Computed example of a mutant assay.
Amino acid sequence: MTVKAVFFDMGGTIDTFWYSKEMRLAETPGLQLLLSSYGLDLRLNDQQLYDLVTNGIARYHQWRLVSYQELPASVVWRDYILAGKSDPYPQLDSIADDLMVWIETHYYKRKMRPEIPAVLAAIQSMGLKIGIISNVNSRGQVPLNLTQYGIKHYFNPIILSSEYKWRKPDPSIFHFAARLANCPTSECIYIGDRIARDIVGAKRAGYKLAIQIKHDFKHGENDDG
């Protein structure tokens, strides 16, 4: 079996994550401070801000599950999270990605799987290319967490839906990753935790093998293949 590249999903695969309403509410004062530092005074208490953000992101998530598209963070904030607000918040164009990174790193508790460094070192020792294909709205969260975990140097290319504009399971993002690795999809392996977007998407793109890694946290999203 000829294999030249191994691609990983990020959340649920490279790292595990969990969240709860209580945890997110406890983190929300930090979001209040961040918004204030950028001159965004929404005049909401913590519960109201939590509801605004989580409901807006939930609406956006339902849309992207159907469309397979990823909108810029500024559009998500303006059209989904702050929808109906009369203020156009012009500063969103420059700060929205920072706000989304905050949400993705504070509204989720993340931890690298302990076996990952050894797995990556073993794959690298075989002379295989290693990459990431991640569905994520910010441009900054995945590189930030990879750096914090001390494993960013293993990955090239790193494909983010926030930059590519299409999400898994759309086959095009898998084809794009293979092209950047200079490998045919028939010589690529993909490893992810979700059947509906990771396994199905990789198979549709013609990857040689798609491997599911179980992630125990249940967040209510359908995962039929």
Rank of each mutant, 00 (worst) to 15 (best):
E187A: 12
S161Q: 06
C183W: 05
F155S: 09
Q148T: 15
T147F: 09
C183M: 08
H153P: 00
I158Y: 00
K165V: 12
K165E: 13
P184F: 07
Y164C: 00
Y149A: 12
S161N: 06
H175E: 11
I189Q: 01
F176S: 03
F155R: 07
N156K: 11
Y149D: 13
S161M: 03
T147W: 10
P157D: 09
I191S: 04
P184A: 08
K165L: 14
P184V: 05
G150I: 07
K165G: 01
I173S: 02
K168R: 12
Y149I: 10
Y164I: 10
F176K: 10
I151R: 09
P157F: 08
W166A: 10
N145V: 14
S162Y: 06
I173M: 07
P171L: 11
I151W: 08
I173G: 01
Q148S: 14
Y149L: 12
A181E: 02
A177N: 00
A178H: 03
H175V: 09
C188I: 05
K168E: 06
K165Y: 13
S186R: 11
Y164P: 00
D170V: 00
C183T: 12
N182H: 10
N182Y: 01
L146I: 14
I159D: 03
P171Y: 11
I158V: 14
C183E: 08
A177C: 06
T185D: 02
Q148A: 15
I158P: 01
F174R: 03
P171A: 11
S172Y: 07
Y149F: 15
I191P: 04
E163H: 08
E163N: 10
I159N: 01
I159E: 04
T147E: 15
R179T: 14
W166F: 12
I159A: 05
